[in-house]
């Protein structure tokens, strides 16, 4: 088994990471902000991919941990006066505890029932967050008015935190591709009954990846909240975020380490470029693009290289 030997994709990813670390020195504020958005989506889509792409569990409620991360980070900064990064780390712990408690029963649901259950959960979480202050008397979410955070330190901090999160998620996916844990998850994703009969404790493995994915999503949510300096429950628990993660993963390549960052890059740039040219109609164009990619590249953008290689191999005698 290979542990430290790196494949060509991994070497390319490390070189890219090195370039991205130096990128702010050469780029303007707009490019840095745009790159930060891409990293944020790469981290979110990548976290969703860990559970759906490897263990085959389609979670339609990841946004719960995005919201929890944002509000917990904000509360720790505003009420406990902790520094941002300390608050962020602690908020991740809160999300993990909630994910453990929520995942234990819900991960026993299979297939479409898990998807429906988690979708309902996310909507409940949003309603709970909207009503929280009124119900409990503990100011946390600010109800429908939301919470404002102090204007932030500067965009470079967010560039590097989001880059770190996207890299961490991608590294986790690469690790799943070659570890015992990853093989167990893939077995569950392909045939959970058979995995169980082969000795895989499917509930424990699924819960572990669910909690890990919740941690990464919560950190991304906490960072996004401070970056935007204003958070409210309708946005941070909104199902739109979930569907954007799903679309990015499917565009990029489900169950692949580089699919989610590719999907995030593609969709964010497409929205940015088309959105400035066709302010009113760009969503139609994006819809057409999504349909085209899913029709002509069913394995996603990450599958294109493989497809071309096999085509080339096919024509050679």
């Amino acid at each position: 088994m290979r542990f430290l030997s790196l494949g060509p994709g991994e070497v390319a990813a490390l070189l890219l990471l090195l370039l991205l670390l130096l990128f702010p020195a050469a780029a303007g504020a707009y490019q840095i902000r745009l790159a930060t958005v891409i990293f944020m989506w790469a981290a979110l889509a990548g976290s969703w991919n860990l559970l759906a792409g490897y263990a085959g569990a389609v979670d339609l409620g990841p946004v719960v941990y995005y919201g929890v991360g944002a509000f917990a980070t904000a509360a720790l900064m505003l009420r406990a006066h902790l520094p941002f990064l300390v608050s962020l780390v602690l908020a991740g712990g809160v999300a993990m505890v909630i994910a453990y408690a929520v995942g234990t029963p819900t991960l026993r649901l299979r297939g479409a029932y898990f998807a429906i259950g988690t979708l309902a959960l996310a909507e409940s979480a949003k309603q709970l967050a909207l009503a929280w202050d009124r119900l409990t008397g503990i100011p946390l979410t600010g109800g429908s008015a939301g919470v404002s955070l102090p204007l932030s330190a500067g965009y470079l901090l967010f560039y590097y935190v989001m880059l770190a999160l996207a890299s961490l998620v991608t590294a986790a996916a690469l690790w799943l591709g070659r570890s015992k844990f990853g093989y167990g998850l893939r077995a569950i994703g392909e045939n959970d009954r058979l995995a169980e009969a082969s000795g895989v404790n499917i509930h424990r493995l699924k819960r572990r990846v669910y909690v890990g994915s919740a941690l990464l999503i919560a950190w991304t949510g906490g960072t996004a909240g401070y970056w935007l300096s204003y958070i409210n429950a309708s946005d941070f628990f909104g199902a739109g975020l979930t569907f954007q993660m799903v679309v990015m993963v499917l565009l990029g390549g489900l169950g692949t380490p580089f699919g989610p960052p590719l999907g995030a890059l593609f969709l964010t740039l497409a929205a940015e470029i088309l959105g400035t040219r066709f302010v009113y109609h760009y969503l139609i164009a994006i819809g057409v693009l999504i349909v085209a990619v899913s029709l002509f590249m069913p394995a996603g953008l990450a599958g294109v290289g493989r497809l071309l290689r096999s085509r080339r191999a096919g024509v050679q005698p």
């Binding site: 167990g184 077995a187 392909e190 045939n191 082969s198 895989v200």
Partner: peptide, 22 residues
């Protein structure tokens, strides 16, 4: 007969060793 369809034949057996035998 059940299998992990998109895994290789070797990986099907490999997973059973990883988890069943540990």
């Amino acid at each position: 007969p059940q299998l992990f369809p998109r895994m290789s034949v070797l990986e099907n057996v490999f997973v059973a060793g990883l988890y069943g035998k540990g």
